[in-house]
Design a protein around this nucleic acid. Structure first.
Length: 446
RNA sequence: GCGAAUAUAGCUCAGUUGGUUAGAGCGCCGGGUUGUGGUUCCGGAGGUCGUGGGUUCAAUUCCCAUUAUUCGCCCCA
């Protein structure tokens, strides 16, 4: 008989208080920036009919990577592997009465049946920001500028990452008109471009030849090399440069420059896997050598709302993930030391002081101070160590003297400084600290 | 789904050329002295060596399977 394992299910994580602190720190900053840009929070069900994903998310994601099952009523449902279809469904359901452009965000968990590895878990958390019913390049530049803000709010600077931008229309034009590929060839070529940075030039060339076939290979390769050697949009082959698709991209770059986003670059090899993108696609890419990978991305997906029987509503969205953000912050040393949400730990000294200490604790709580009272009766150093282990920023020592004088020994556990303070001064000191650590706290937003 | 590496105490790891009671550091718990910890003294608990099977007089050690973790591929962000 095997005993129960204390391990969490493969690919999932337990969030102990010290982990949850980091999670909340990131979530709170996401929330703050989203709200600052005028986005409102929404929620969606954990389960959706499997069909919602089968339609557009991509074959692999829907068929291989969902956690799906048949419910007691015989319906095939899936734990959401992403948010975009759900929010599209919600917008479709209220398409008439919504106020457009609709700016929406959510922070939620998702599951995908994948092989876990660095930066990739089976259960993961994502912020989703989407704007519905806004045409042209403006909503795209707004979303990308928000993406930059999501990194900047944690202290990231422009040299830490780059924003790669492409456009599905450019890709389609390139594949069909420029390279003259049919649909099947185009699909293979898109995958090949996607892997370009992972394979050698020789492998890339050999696989490209396979896709083109004998007759087209030499002219096809020449065209690809003309594409890849272009360092900027201006250097693209004239045929592509003059296409309306590239003009859209140019417009976006003009807007981004105006918004102060400096580290964006056009990358014709950027593809992105999800089938529902119809225009701009982009990725925020970490430049640190230890973490050289995509942080998050998004794009325009104009067709998705229309799938739910409504008229088409344009949409642009982006989804930063918790795991990658955490790795980014760790790699760049941007994670601050986070303390407990409990602000004051009361150390009780002496035999008959607990009753008085309880009264002080109650008064602190009435003033809105998060207070833990030591009820163990243990020796002073044990109580003290407990408070420090919990990363509680302040300790109040309460003995007979303090109860009599109503002046308390008040210790800052980070600086080790200790002073005698009145109840009122304690309250104001704790609250001053709280305002200096706005990011750590949920309650300011609820 | 494919390939590789790893699995010994809470953590980081030693060790056993197959042999009786399996080790260290840190951590944890208790006690002494202190109205003050992260840098005191003394003591203690905790491991059927990932799990199952095989070979052997004998397996933590060798073999097979399995599970988990890590890295990579596929995929994706």
């Amino acid at each position: 008989m095997s005993t129960l394992s204390p391990q969490s299910y493969k690919g999932t994580r337990d969030y102990y208080p010290e982990d949850k602190r980091i999670q909340n720190f990131i979530f709170n900053n996401w929330k703050r920036v989203s709200m600052r840009f005028g986005y409102e929070e929404y929620g969606a069900p954990l389960l959706e009919p499997l069909d919602v994903y089968a339609a557009k998310s991509g074959q692999e994601l829907a068929n291989e990577q969902t956690y799906s099952f048949t419910d007691r009523g015989g319906r095939t449902v899936a734990i959401r592997p992403e948010m975009t279809p759900s929010i599209s469904r919600m917008v479709a359901a209220r398409r008439q009465e919504m106020a457009y452009p609709a700016r929406l965000f959510s922070i939620a968990n998702f599951m995908r049946y994948e092989r876990p590895q660095r930066g990739r878990e089976r259960e993961f958390w994502q912020l989703n920001v989407d704007i519905f019913g806004a045409e042209g390049a403006l909503p795209e530049s707004e979303i990308i500028a928000m993406g930059a803000e999501f990194l900047k709010v944690f202290g990231a600077t422009d040299d830490m990452y780059v924003i790669r931008i492409n456009n599905r229309k450019v890709i389609n034009y390139m594949m069909a008109q420029y390279l003259g590929l049919d649909a099947i060839q185009a699909q293979l070529m898109i995958k090949l471009f996607d892997r370009k940075n992972k394979i050698s030039n020789e492998e890339f060339r050999d696989q490209a030849i396979d896709i083109f076939g004998e007759s087209m290979a030499s002219s096809g390769l020449a065209k690809i090399s003309a594409l890849l050697s272009a360092k900027s949009m201006a250097e693209l082959p004239g045929e592509i440069r003059e296409s309306s698709a590239v003009k859209e991209v140019q417009e976006l770059f003009t807007l981004l420059e105006r918004a102060g986003v400096k580290n964006a670059m056009f990358d014709i090899t950027l593809m992105r896997g999800l089938d529902y993108y119809t225009g701009t696609v982009f990725e925020f890419f970490d430049l640190h050598p230890d973490n050289n990978r995509s942080l998050f991305g998004g794009g325009r997906y104009d067709g998705l709302v229309g799938l739910f029987g409504a008229e088409q509503i344009s949409a642009v969205g982006m989804a930063p993930g918790l795991t990658m953000t955490e790795l980014f912050l760790q790699t760049h040393n941007l994670l601050p030391k986070l303390s407990s949400t409990t602000e004051v730990y009361i150390v009780v000294l002496g035999e008959d002081t607990l009753k008085g200490a309880m009264a002080v604790a109650a008064n602190l709580r009435n003033e809105g101070v998060n207070t833990e009272l030591d009820i163990t009766g243990r020796k002073l150093d044990k109580q003290l160590k407990t408070a420090i282990k919990k990363d509680i920023p302040y300790i109040i020592f309460i003995g007979e003297d303090e109860l009599k004088s109503e002046v308390y020994s008040f210790k800052d556990t980070v600086s080790s400084e200790e002073q005698k303070l009145s109840f009122e001064r304690i309250i104001s000191t704790v609250k001053d600290r709280r305002h200096a650590h706005v990011d750590d706290f949920d309650d300011l937003f609820e």
